[in-house]
Design a protein around this nucleic acid. Sequence first.
DNA 1: TTGAATGCAAAAAATTTGCATATTG
DNA 2: CAATATGCAAATTTTTTGCATTCAA
Lengths: 139, 139
Amino acid sequence: MSDLGTRLRAAGRRLTPQRQQVLDLVEQLGHATPEQIVEAAPATDAAPMALSTVYRSLEALQELGLVTHTHVDHRVPSYHLTTHATHIHVVCRDCGCVDEAPADVAEEFVARLDRSLGFEADVTHAAIHGLCRTCRKQS
Amino acid sequence: MSDLGTRLRAAGRRLTPQRQQVLDLVEQLGHATPEQIVEAAPATDAAPMALSTVYRSLEALQELGLVTHTHVDHRVPSYHLTTHATHIHVVCRDCGCVDEAPADVAEEFVARLDRSLGFEADVTHAAIHGLCRTCRKQS
DNA sequence: TTGAATGCAAAAAATTTGCATATTG
DNA sequence: CAATATGCAAATTTTTTGCATTCAA
């Protein structure tokens, strides 16, 4: 993977400190909502990083295929690196906890979707909802 | 499945024409956003059905386990009957088309999540994103 | 220098909440 | 009659947009 600047320029866009920082923060946080990103951004720097900039940066990074997002919490999107997308998100509808499973547990599933619909699924993009081990016992 | 009124009362709630209508509309529309439900509701009736009522009704119906929702369009939730949830939603990130696959294509996947995490997945609740057959060829 | 990107504030969307009134059981 | 629901409007929350200014290439 070439570096961020090269990729952005190839797409007729530019590398700015904000974009670099958004990417860094997504990587560092693992999963992050736009809100969490501004919060984590050191306002000590020159600019305080506007929320709208974060939205626009994420959009750009997503277009480049560097990040994707998932709806862990049913409302706000949570972004993560595509290279980090080697796992599936599993969210408990009772306690709200989020767990991860290696992406290969979905291999067979993805293959079947391909066979039956010709659909190329990106499971790492989806949050699977259900009941976690603990909440399951209680209900 | 007992009828709506009985279920609601068992939960200490009441059966109102609005709730009945919301349920009917979800069934009739297959998948519907709160917005689509008010639009589809015949305002000709006594009340015009407030959007907030739709939200509250869906919440109640969801609590009863009669409906669930999915994030087909990344932002607005789309509701459907749980009894109708025998298929998986597959959304193309390019053209935005929504296709369905029978729930059993995920059987193995669900079994594996159970084995590895003890997680009871509800795949019919998830929208799987990716590329449809057509868009796949074009890229 | 030139177009793209930022910040800020205002505009849109999408949901939620407060409260007086109507309705169900 | 008592408690739950509704409708409406106002308040939140989340995301997008317009625009003057700044900055990358």
